[in-house]
Design a protein around this nucleic acid. Structure first.
Length: 920
RNA sequence: GCUCAGGUGGUGGAAUAGGUAGACACGCGGGACUUAAAAUCCCGUGGGCAGCGAUGCCCGUACGGGUUCGAUUCCCGUCCCGAGCACCA
């Protein structure tokens, strides 16, 4: 019987499904292990071979953990709300729900063929009302809480109200938007509207006006992580800055905890670094400067990390959007300033980025007073200062900040160096090193000493305070779109009010068209009767990350209608032990999820403060594109090796009609009508294509479908090959031609057991050599799996199988454990052989082979003997020999005499069980 | 510009508490079996030089230095590719 993979794979996939083999229980005597994949957005294009890479890795680990006796939770679901289905709906009128359902079915069929061990009874879909009920619930909880900085946790909004009633807000340390100070009496005198407005500034989910990323083409606002280089991540449309009133999540309140709790996570350094940069903690001071427009004096606060450079301040700069601009613009400068503001405003984000080096600005007409020197310095306005960071105003020290330097050079402002020996004639000296000079009481200190000394001084004199700033912004939480979770919020007399929790889920209403209304309202404005208690309901919907922020919790208890997750289920599964997914979520999902989890942790709903203990970022699988070369203005194609003799155009050709860079010319003629009568100039009778490694995409005709691979080689081959390709975390190109190697390996493996319809396996005692091969393999595969080095463990399998084949091994004692060992990687063939060996059940833990060192122990060691570092011969010596004895043996060895010749031995270096080096 | 991760045969990649570089696989070349193909198996395969040959010698892990008996691995400098951030004061 040959290795009949189509039949075997069908059989076992059906068996696993029928027996619910991978169903995880929420109670078990076994230790738990939770392995999670980042659930996919089901796109219309289906899966290509790059997508399942991480799923295969996590599946191997899940199966391995099960075999090792763990109760493994390994679920899968769909991130089903999103823009593409809605864009498709706008174009075709097909309801996003239908599109999404179709795509999900396609994804499921593709995944099923690969033989994953998911517990499908726990599937979740973010667009299912039973699921998004809990997304809405979490939002209402955030609406009903504020962040207490003293307790460093979220607290119910009622506690805030009672404190306002007793003591006003002067003693409250909250993470909040800007609020004026008020007393208890003032609070009690406020109108309902005023109170509501103030509380809104404290809520963790709040509505507030802010500068947002507005994407006109998509008709919606976007979060910072949804914009890259001034373009929307989805679709690549230009994005502009706009002030709008939007729902936001106060993620910034958790900045410090997001930063410090990262320490204990087993995440890659680069990912942690990315989150650290995104959170962007910087320590410095806020300082007050007196500013005057000639008519009136104000106290203006700025933020700086370089308090030590205050003696070098030669001007101040405001962001164009800063509220100070209006106050500090003098009558003489009014026209110039207005002109500049108009210019800055009409620029798109993209233009701002592309003109990064261009220095622009305008003088406001006002002056500030340096609180230490008493000197008067001009206040300028420039777009290089950001409104959203710090206070939107800076003190400029051109000698020691390159941006201030460029500005000073452009507008001829003075530059005062403050560090001994630094040269600022060509560029600023930004480094935080050197000895201070020209700096009053700081003169003579090093920069590192001067920074704290300066802050101490300003704190003591009431000029400023220590302050930590974060780049992390609150997340814009509303989208002017249809296909998302509706907000369970209605407006009574213009005041936002939460719906009653018992009314959840608030289901998406049916509408006839999916585009915004003609007067620019979100699509939900088209819904009839979109009201609650006779009041209008919020018309925006939630963004994509809403549904993905707590899905790992829902998997623990997916059918619970009374809670997101029961205390019992959460207490058992706790958090994700291993999370595998792409690095593209570093600053989006992986921040939001951590925030969401911490919020629920503060409220006591979940027991762990971090959601994902260990995280692995699988690399991208790139496409390998093939090219043909058309001679210009002809329909003749010239083979790769001859193309330089002609004037050609390089054209992408479908990789599926190319085999090992050789073009199937007949298939090419049929591929597209234009090429029906194509002529070819061949080399050695073949058309050789060029190639390049590119992103896998339809337009480059380099997409390889996993279904096709499963048809031709089988799921086990696909699984092994994806792992064999290279290290999991590295990006690498897909090249179908290499797949024969692992397919051959599986056939060889099969032939170890079966030859010509007979089972070769016998109950014979294995030889010492066979035992050594098996146990070396067990050790290697186990340590490799634990280190997620799947590629090297596949190699180890190949070596072992080659050796066992060579020695015609047929011992059951060797071969049976081999099936168990292979079961994580290639489960179908392993199960089939397991059954052939007479077992009734799926491969089980009871038979998992343990590593026994005695089978692999060596008594002698083949020492490589080097002379001055160059290996010359090998010497087999007992491992137990002491270095001195080894040295004596080497000196006595006749081969040594040959290599030493006339030279005398200066030294002999012996590293036990490693090497002998003779220095001559 | 800043931060991080990399650079090893024709290709994907092995090997680092410093110790035989190129495991394993693809491709390629040669051979066996076969009417033929597929499948399978065997041999060779980093470069150069010498030899009929077994074999021997030299050079080789982006480049230039350094530390060391010994460096793909550690240190310094340069170049190149990738990812992330991008006026964050």
């Amino acid at each position: 019987m040959e290795y009949n993979f189509p039949e075997i794979e069908k059989k076992w996939q059906a068996y696993w499904a029928a027996n619910h083999t991978f169903k995880a229980e929420n109670e078990s005597g076994k230790p738990k292990y939770y392995v999670l994949d980042m659930f996919p957005y089901p796109s219309g294009a289906g899966l290509h071979v790059g997508h399942p890479l991480g799923y295969i890795a996590s599946d191997i680990y899940s199966r391995y953990k099960r075999l090792k006796g763990f109760n493994v939770l390994h679920p899968m679901g769909y991130d089903a709300f999103g823009l593409p289905a809605e864009q498709y709906a706008i174009q075709t009128g097909q309801h996003p729900e239908v599109t999404t359902e179709n795509n999900i079915n396609r994804y499921r069929a593709q995944m099923d063929r690969i033989g994953f061990s998911y517990d499908w009874d726990r599937e979740v879909r973010t667009c299912d009302p039973k699921y998004y009920k809990w997304t809405q619930w979490a939002f209402l909880e955030m609406f009903g809480h504020w962040y207490d900085m003293d307790a460093a946790k979220a607290s119910p909004i009622e506690t805030l109200v009672s404190r306002f009633e007793k003591e006003g807000n002067g003693t409250v340390h909250a993470a909040c938007s800007e609020v004026p100070v008020f007393t208890a009496d003032q609070w009690n005198a406020f109108t309902g509207q005023e109170k509501s407005d103030i509380l809104m500034k404290y809520r963790i989910a709040y509505q507030g006006e802010t500068s947002v990323n507005w994407c006109p083409a998509l008709g919606t606002v976007l979060a910072n992580d949804e914009v890259k280089e001034g373009l929307s991540v989805r679709g690549g449309f230009p994005v502009e800055q706009k002030r709008m009133k939007q729902w936001q999540l106060r993620v910034s309140a958790y900045a410090e905890r997001l930063l410090t709790d990262m320490e204990d996570l087993e995440w890659s350094d680069s990912l942690k670094e990315m989150q650290r940069n995104w959170i962007g903690r910087s320590q410095g001071a806020e300082m007050k400067f007196l500013v005057s427009n000639g008519a009136r004096e104000y106290e203006m606060t700025i933020f700086t990390t370089r308090a030590d450079t205050i003696f070098g301040v030669t001007f101040m700069v405001l962001a164009p959007e800063s509220e100070w601009v209006e106050k500090l613009t003098t009558a003489e400068q009014k026209n110039a300033v207005e002109e500049y503001l108009a210019y800055a405003k009409k620029k798109t984000e993209r233009e701002r980025i592309s003109e990064t080096r261009k220095v622009t600005g305008v003088f406001s007409g006002s002056y500030a007073v340096n609180p230490l020197t008493g000197e008067k310095v001009p206040v300028w306005i420039s777009e290089y200062v950001l409104a959203g960071y710090g206070t939107g105003a800076i003190m400029a020290v051109p000698a020691h900040d390159s941006r201030d330097y460029a500005f000073a050079k452009q507008f001829n402002l003075p530059i005062i160096p403050l560090i001994e020996g630094c040269d600022v004639s060509e560029e600023s000296f930004d480094a935080k090193e050197g000895i201070m000079t020209n700096s009053g009481f700081l003169t003579g200190l090093t920069v590192k000493e001067a920074i704290p000394a300066a802050i101490d001084y300003v704190e003591k004199h009431g000029i400023g305070v220590r302050k930590i700033n974060y780049r992390l912004r609150d997340a814009i939480f509303s989208r002017q779109r249809y296909w998302g979770e509706p907000f369970p919020v209605y407006f009574e007399d213009g005041l936002a009010r939460p719906m009653d929790v018992s009314q959840l889920p608030l289901c998406l209403p049916e509408i006839d068209k999916f585009e915004p209304t003609p007067d620019g309202e979100p699509p939900l404005a088209r819904a009839k009767g979109w009201e609650y208690k006779g009041c209008p309901i919020e018309k925006s919907t939630m963004p994509g990350f809403a549904g993905s922020s707590a899905y790992y919790l829902r998997y623990m208890d997916p059918h619970n209608d009374d809670a997101l997750v029961s205390q019992q289920a959460d207490g058992y599964w706790r958090n994700v032990d291993l999370y595998i997914g792409g690095t593209e979520h570093a600053t989006g999902h992986l921040i939001y999820s951590r925030f969401w989890n911490k919020f629920l942790y503060d409220l006591g709903y979940v027991c762990e403060k971090e959601p994902f203990k260990k995280l692995i970022n699988q690399g991208m699988i790139q496409g390998r594109s093939n090219f043909v070369y058309r001679i210009k203005n002809t329909n003749t194609f010239v083979s790769y090796g001859l193309k330089d003799q002609y004037d050609t155009t390089e054209i992408h050709v479908n990789v599926n009609i190319v085999d090992n860079d050789r073009l199937d010319t007949e298939a090419f003629r049929k591929w597209m009508p234009d090429y029906a009568d194509a002529e070819f100039i061949l080399e050695d009778g073949e058309y050789i294509c060029g190639y390049a490694v590119e992103k896998m995409s339809k337009s480059m005709f380099n997409v390889v479908n996993p279904d096709m691979i499963c048809d031709r080689y089988g799921a086990d081959t696909l699984r092994l090959y994806e792992m064999f390709l290279g290290p999991l975390e590295q990006s690498k190109p897909w090249d179908t031609k290499g797949i024969d190697g692992v397919h051959r390996f599986l056939r060889k493996f099969w032939r170890l057991f079966y030859r010509e319809d007979t089972l070769q396996v016998q109950d014979v005692k294995p030889s010492a050599k066979e035992l050594k091969i098996l146990h070396t393999l067990i050790h290697k595969v186990e340590t490799d799996i634990e280190n997620f080095s799947f590629n090297t463990s596949v190699s180890a399998f190949m070596i072992a199988v080659n050796e066992l084949t060579d020695m015609k091994c047929c011992s059951k004692e060797i071969l049976e454990p081999m099936t168990v060992l292979l079961a994580s990687f290639a489960p179908h063939i392993a199960e089939e052989l397991w059954e052939k060996l007479g077992h009734r059940d799926s491969i089980t833990y009871a038979h998992f082979p343990e590593y026994h060192e005695e089978f692999t122990r060596e008594d002698t060691f083949e020492y490589p003997v080097s002379f001055n570092g160059k290996m010359r011969f090998k010497l087999s010596l007992p491992k137990s020999m002491k270095p001195a004895e080894v040295e004596a043996a080497v000196r006595a060895e006749p081969a040594t005499a040959k290599w030493v010749g006339e030279a005398s031995i200066k030294k002999v270096i012996v590293v036990p069980s490693k090497i002998i080096n003779v220095v001559i």
